[in-house]
Amino acid sequence: MTMAIDLKGGAAPATLNERLLKRHDRRERTALSLLTAPGALLILVVLILPIGWLFWLSFFDASGEPTLANYARMLRPVYVKTFISTFQVAGLVTAACVLLGYPVAYLLSQLSERTAGILMIFVILPFWTSVLVRTYAWLVILQRTGLINTWLTGAGIIEEPMPLVHNLLGTVIGMVHVMLPFLILPLYASMRAIDPVLMRAAANCGATPAQAFRQVFLPLSLPGLAAGIGLVFVLCLGFFVTPALLGGGRVAMWAMQIADNIAVYGNWGAASALGVVLLAVTALILVVLRRIFKVDTFGGAR
């Protein structure tokens, strides 16, 4: 009997503590829910609802009748050509940003924080100017009577001006200038977080500088590289201003096709279908990038 009383007496405080802990957990979850509610509401209003509205409109024609014609027209040659051109430009710009941005980020990561901070000003300097202004600046530089062609013809290097604008080359040059900081910044942050002791340890184990870079530094920088590639590629898919001005109508992007469907034809259903397809393909690309790099596209290693 005494043992039972002791057991009951010992069990009561434990049960009370469990109740208090559960009550504390409920209060904490409620407080966290209230704190995150404004952000969740903002995401719902500015992201989820517009995407849902876009998806809904894609199943209606200009007269408001339900139809699948908006998706069937994706098989037309003009849409297929625009789709291929969009991913071609995005791929070229992303590749150029990787080739130019990785050495720059690596150089900055090897410098002192003071020197790297000063040089980083030149990386973020383009953000202080509008994309439209930068695009017009490239138009002045690259056109047939621009600075480059004028200097080359004046120096006798070329006889006739080169076609540097109103084509794919001019579009890629302008977009690389806009997109390059989006690759350098996450890549630099990832490289800066790599412990220099690891490179010295690889050297002590007999690795050459090239082997240490390839086997130690490069794999550790992949999270930043994946984040930069994801940002650049996704942003390029929705680019409008630079291809419209520097492409001269010869470089058709998916965003330009969406704008034409709304501004010229007033067909919101067709434009919405284009947007839905672009969103789905973008999500698929992010999944592929995650599998290729074995990291979260916008985060760290898995």
Results as ranks from 00 to 15, higher is better:
5 I>K: 10
7 L>M: 15
11 A>R: 12
13 P>E: 00
13 P>G: 03
16 L>Y: 12
16 L>E: 08
20 L>V: 08
29 R>N: 02
29 R>S: 12
39 G>I: 03
40 A>R: 12
42 L>N: 05
43 I>V: 12
44 L>G: 11
47 L>K: 09
47 L>W: 14
48 I>E: 09
50 P>F: 07
52 G>L: 13
55 F>H: 00
57 L>I: 06
60 F>Y: 08
61 D>M: 05
64 G>L: 06
64 G>F: 03
66 P>R: 07
72 A>Q: 15
76 R>H: 12
78 V>E: 13
79 Y>G: 06
81 K>V: 14
83 F>L: 15
83 F>R: 13
85 S>K: 02
86 T>S: 13
88 Q>E: 12
93 V>R: 00
94 T>Y: 00
95 A>H: 07
95 A>Y: 04
96 A>C: 01
96 A>H: 05
96 A>K: 01
97 C>H: 01
100 L>V: 04
103 P>I: 06
104 V>T: 14
107 L>D: 02
108 L>F: 00
109 S>V: 03
109 S>L: 03
110 Q>D: 09
111 L>A: 08
112 S>V: 00
114 R>P: 01
114 R>A: 12
115 T>A: 06
116 A>P: 05
116 A>T: 01
118 I>G: 09
118 I>R: 04
120 M>L: 09
122 F>K: 04
125 L>Q: 03
128 W>I: 01
129 T>P: 00
131 V>P: 08
135 T>N: 01
135 T>Q: 02
135 T>V: 03
137 A>K: 04
139 L>K: 12
141 I>V: 14
142 L>I: 05
142 L>G: 02
142 L>Y: 07
146 G>M: 06
146 G>S: 08
147 L>N: 03
148 I>E: 01
149 N>A: 07
159 E>W: 09
160 E>H: 13
162 M>Q: 13
163 P>W: 10
165 V>I: 12
165 V>N: 06
166 H>E: 15
167 N>K: 07
173 I>S: 01
174 G>L: 04
175 M>P: 08
176 V>A: 02
182 F>W: 04
187 L>Q: 08
188 Y>C: 00
189 A>P: 10
190 S>A: 13
191 M>L: 13
192 R>F: 14
193 A>F: 08
196 P>K: 04
196 P>R: 07
198 L>D: 01
204 N>V: 00
204 N>K: 08
204 N>P: 02
206 G>H: 05
208 T>D: 04
211 Q>T: 11
211 Q>P: 02
218 L>K: 09
220 L>T: 01
224 G>W: 00
225 L>S: 03
228 G>W: 05
228 G>L: 07
230 G>N: 13
230 G>Q: 05
232 V>E: 09
232 V>I: 09
233 F>E: 09
235 L>Q: 14
235 L>K: 13
242 T>R: 11
250 R>V: 11
252 A>Q: 15
254 W>C: 15
254 W>P: 05
257 Q>D: 14
257 Q>S: 15
261 N>H: 10
262 I>E: 10
263 A>S: 14
264 V>N: 15
265 Y>H: 15
266 G>Q: 09
267 N>M: 10
268 W>I: 04
270 A>S: 14
272 S>H: 01
273 A>H: 11
274 L>A: 05
275 G>Q: 10
276 V>T: 06
278 L>T: 12
280 A>R: 00
282 T>Y: 06
285 I>G: 09
295 V>C: 12
297 T>N: 02
298 F>G: 06
301 A>M: 04
301 A>H: 05
